[in-house]
C-alpha cells in the first residue's frame, strides 16, 4: 500500500513534457531539477573563492545590451584581467548576462540556455528593461521583469549602462559569490513550479521539454 503511494507521488513529481509530441516524449528526460547542497563550510569557501575568480560568460547576446559586452573583451576595458572569459556553450558557462529587453521569442531561448547551464550558475540582469521593462514597459512582445522567469543575482541599472558599470556589477557578483550568497540554481529548483507557471504564461508555443537537461 505504502509502496503504491510512493510510486504515485513519484509519478506526480515527473514532468509531463506536454509541449512535445507524444512519440518524442520518450526521447527527453522527465526528471525535475533537484536541490544540490553546498559542500562543507571551509571547502565551499575555498571553491567559492575560485569560482569568483573564474567567471565564464555565456556568449549569447539577448538584447541591445550585448553591445556593451564587446568593448569589455577588447583592450580598453579588458575583463580577462578579472578572470572573466567568454564560453560559447551553455554547458561550460557559469554566468548568464541578460543583455537588456527580452522579447517573448528570446525568453524561450533564455530559459533553454539557463537550464542547460551546469550549476552553480549566476545571472546578471543588465539594463533597465530587465528590471521593470524600461522603455519597452508597455510593449506587446517583451517581458517586464526577468526575475519572474529565472532567478537573478545582480542587477545593473541604466539604459545603456557603460562598460564601467558592468565591471562594477561583476565585482558585486564576485563579492556575493565569495560570501556564498548566490544560490540561484537551488532557488530555481525549489521554486520550479512557480517559475514554470510564469514561463508558460508568456511562451505560448511551448514545444520543448519542461526542463532542458
Amino acid at each position: 500500500m505504502e509502496k503504491k503511494d510512493l510510486n504515485e507521488i513519484e509519478k506526480e513529481m515527473k514532468l509531463a513534457n506536454e509541449g512535445l509530441p507524444e512519440k518524442e516524449r520518450i526521447l527527453f528526460s522527465d526528471a525535475r531539477p533537484s536541490r544540490v547542497e553546498p559542500l562543507n563550510k571551509y571547502l565551499e569557501q575555498f571553491v567559492n573563492w575560485a569560482r569568483a575568480r573564474s567567471l565564464w560568460l555565456l556568449a549569447f547576446g539577448t538584447g541591445c545590451g550585448a553591445t556593451e559586452l564587446r568593448p569589455l573583451m577588447t583592450s580598453r576595458f579588458d575583463v580577462s584581467r578579472f578572470g572573466i572569459a567568454g564560453r560559447p556553450t551553455p554547458r561550460q558557462a557559469s554566468v548568464f548576462i541578460i543583455g537588456g529587453y527580452a522579447s517573448i521569442k528570446t525568453i524561450k531561448r533564455i530559459v533553454r540556455s539557463y537550464e542547460q547551464m551546469q550549476g552553480p550558475k549566476y545571472v546578471i540582469a543588465l539594463g533597465s528593461c530587465t528590471i521593470n521593462g524600461g522603455m519597452y514597459y508597455d510593449s506587446y512582445n517583451t517581458i517586464n521583469r526577468i526575475d519572474y522567469y529565472i532567478p537573478v543575482d545582480t542587477y545593473i541599472a541604466g539604459c545603456m549602462p557603460r562598460p564601467e558599470a558592468l565591471i562594477a556589477g561583476f565585482n558585486r557578483l564576485k563579492e556575493k559569490i565569495q560570501k556564498g550568497e548566490c544560490d540561484g540554481m537551488n532557488k530555481y529548483a525549489d521554486n520550479f513550479d512557480w517559475y514554470k507557471k510564469n514561463q508558460k504564461q508568456i511562451i505560448k508555443d511551448w514545444n520543448m521539454p519542461d526542463y532542458n537537461w
Binding site: 575560485a50 583592450s75 579588458d78 584581467r81 578572470g83 551546469q118 552553480p120
Partner: peptide
Amino acid sequence: RFGPPVWQPFLDIIQTHSRRVAI
C-alpha cells in the same frame, strides 16, 4: 591588454571541478 593572471588556468580547473552537477 593586461590579460588574466598567470595562475588563471589553475583557478579555471578548480572552478570546473567544483560544479555541482555534470551532464
